[in-house]
Design a protein around this nucleic acid. Structure first.
Lengths: 206, 206
DNA sequence: CGTACCGAGTATATTTTTGAACCCGGTATG
DNA sequence: CATACCGGGTTCAAAAATATACTCGGTACG
């Protein structure tokens, strides 16, 4: 039953509370207008504690936005291709959908990031890191370096696009199950394209 | 503004939560049927933590029931009699009244204590301690030992009686302001009796 | 009778959180 | 130009909370 122990439960709880409070304040007053002192106070923790959970102010928003693609690839089952593992992962994500409760937080996060240049930059940096790690994982799997980097670039580009489509739908207020359905379709389309290459669509255009 | 600092605020909060949870569980299921482990778990703390706040299970209920009479006497203003200081204290207590929110907790506490022999005993012990300390404070103020003990005995007996009357009224569901009014009157009557002696009432009886 | 368990309470080591002082870069101000 | 403040971030010691394992008295049970 994952009886996680008091210590770990409290840590998760604290971390969560800090992030939620920060997001709410950022959304209300703007990222730059809120100091970390205020966040700590509002969350009921000391500033030092805040910084043990989130090394920088930016991390309050960007932490957890990265899907660990490298881990998914590295941890795929025997005899499974990296792409198959990733497809499976995003397929199940789409199927599971988002919880009602998370939507509001998600929208707020998108708003805050989009309205804060520093966070846009940080997000970009996160994605670069994601791509770099994915390339390493692919190289580990036997691909040569340049191939690995090209594959990683394609894959992360596609996944980022999927996420953006998702965010737009959520932001537009589409009903959640509708979002889920579309997202499921998009995932298959995206991975088909990755697998079979752009030429596979060429024919349909004529 | 009593900007108490995060540490102290959290301690008070934790102590309060433990006591509240304990009282609720005791009231629901009976003192003996609830283990300290359950209380700790329900309050979200470790058993050890509970015991750093409350040295025994009984203290979960009895802590804070003692008015520190000795301190009131010791801390009275210059040239003021112990009795005057005590009267003033209880007068202002009665005037201030109880908060709406506390009533429920108070009633529960009375229920739990009354229905638990061990707690009745503990309560008695607390009162003995109170009396003992009061006697010491009076002796410190210049009274000889026996006189101090006799005075302390009278005073604590009277105050206990006042409290019991108060509890009965609250338990009976009298409106709070009514309780406050009566209590104010009772306080004056009680201290008049203490000050002027029983004979002061003899005349009225004939 | 023994023994095995349960709940109150204790001892000790480790982790988490706090407090307080500080550094450093930026910006306002005299 | 100097100086003083402010906000992000770090350092280190001290306090609080947790995990774990224990003692001790009582009691159910074979």
């Amino acid at each position: 039953m994952m009886m996680a122990g008091l210590r770990e439960r409290k840590k998760e709880q604290t971390r969560r509370r800090i992030a939620e409070v920060a997001l709410r304040l950022f959304d209300e007053r703007g990222y730059d207008a809120v100091t970390v002192n205020e966040i700590a106070e509002a969350a009921g923790v000391a500033k030092v504690t805040l910084f043990t959970y989130f090394p920088t102010k930016e991390c309050l928003v960007t932490d957890g936005v990265a899907d660990d693609l490298a881990a998914i690839v590295a941890g795929r089952g025997e005899g499974r291709s990296p792409l198959a593992a990733l497809r499976e992962h995003y397929r199940s994500m789409a199927t599971r959908g988002v919880g009602e409760a998370d939507v509001e937080a998600l929208q707020a996060k998108v708003r805050v990031i989009a309205s804060t240049p520093a966070l846009m930059g940080a997000l970009h940096a996160v994605r670069m890191g994601e791509r770099y790690d994915l390339a390493a994982a692919l190289a580990e799997g036997g691909e040569d370096d340049l191939t690995a980097q090209l594959m990683a670039a394609q894959i992360t580009a596609v996944i980022t696009t999927l996420q953006e489509a998702f965010f737009r739908r959520v932001a537009a207020g589409e009903p959640l199950e509708e979002v889920g359905r579309r997202q499921s379709r998009d995932v298959e389309l995206a991975f088909d394209l990755l697998e079979h290459g752009l030429s596979s669509r060429e024919g349909e255009r004529s």
